[in-house]
Design a protein around this nucleic acid. Sequence first.
DNA 1: AAGGTGATGGCACTCAGTACCCTTGATTAT
DNA 2: ATAATCAAGGGTACTGAGTGCCATCACCTT
Lengths: 226, 226
Amino acid sequence: MRDSLVRAAFRLFLDRGFEQTTIDDIVSLAGVGRRSFFRYFPSKEDVVFPDHDGCLAEMTAFLRDSPADGDPVAQVCDAARLVLRMYAADPLFSVQRYRLTREVPGLRAHELSVVWRYERALAGHLRERGAGRADGALRADVVAAAVVAAHNHALRTWLRAGGEGDVQAAVDEALGYVARSFAPRQHDAGTDGVVDADEEVVVLLARRGTPLWRVVRDVEGALGER
Amino acid sequence: MRDSLVRAAFRLFLDRGFEQTTIDDIVSLAGVGRRSFFRYFPSKEDVVFPDHDGCLAEMTAFLRDSPADGDPVAQVCDAARLVLRMYAADPLFSVQRYRLTREVPGLRAHELSVVWRYERALAGHLRERGAGRADGALRADVVAAAVVAAHNHALRTWLRAGGEGDVQAAVDEALGYVARSFAPRQHDAGTDGVVDADEEVVVLLARRGTPLWRVVRDVEGALGER
DNA sequence: AAGGTGATGGCACTCAGTACCCTTGATTAT
DNA sequence: ATAATCAAGGGTACTGAGTGCCATCACCTT
């Protein structure tokens, strides 16, 4: 039933356009009552994203069951890969949907809501698991946004290419970039050497050729400063 | 006219809720014709974000006129600060709007569209100015998303607090975190201490409390290893 | 057989948004 | 001064999404 509605809807959307298709067109093609459409999809836009509710549930379950002592950023990247798997499972459908969402402003807006829910799930996980760290909430929001952006960048490049090529590898590379950018880095000192008072680690940068006595003096200062 | 519509709309939205207010309610309170509402606002949601079109135009102009030899990331952060200035210019209005968008799903979706346009503007600038770099498009999307997330994190913390406190400082700190995360980095050391053979800089990590003799030994090794 | 239950269809309604046309008032050309 | 023009607003009627309510039907229980 759901499926026949989705198929009828896509046939019409691709044929005459999203806005030129009414709910009555869909239900008459699918051979069901108009009222039943809204039993399965809360809005006309939702029929374009029929699998995202399930995918979000899958993602939240995955995050909930992930080990508490693992790397939260890596877990969130794996969660993004779950979404990718859904897209990759039906490339033709994904490409058609992508073209629709590119053209129809209403669908683009709806897709943003869908993506937003994923992002909030990721950020919530990072917030819980990364607790204790200073600026944990900020970090959670930023990393979640970056992971989603990287995932979508690779995914959309693949979709624009018509679903040809290795999405998996592209997403891995994009997520790798994000993971590297947010890898534990105690400090990105500008010039000399700095102590981050909130962390358990001291970082010292020295230009090659720096006299050892100066390095030792700075290390000593940094380590003693706690 | 625009302004009287906005004031009437907000009075009703805050009083009886967004969905419980019809366009007719708004125009009759404002004393204008129903048709005129849609001359000023393309949809009911848009009346809640009356100033974002102008702010987006201001942002694009700012980015267009920014020096070509400057740091694109810093420019994009400054562009985000333009948006913040708009919110901070009328704290009461911003807080009221925030509470509305938190409660009403339709407004939340619309806000996502608004934010999305800002993010695309930032990403477009980064893509143009950061050209040449490997993975420039990916980096542009990720950095833009991170900047927007950081901005929104600080902004919403302030809005949740009722508009009390120093937003400017909070956003500066959040953007600083992003800028640091994506700053050119010599090495993303893993655990102990690493030498990047291609760079002129040595990075050494040490846990607090590490005996100094061990630190010195490692520094010596690293500096001498060239 | 009687009654309950869940899925579906039909009908009527509200309301956002649009197309089309009218009014008004100010400005300008002749 | 009068006519032409044009911009700004108003009014009316329409489409179509989404909702509430009720009827229907199949299936299942007792």
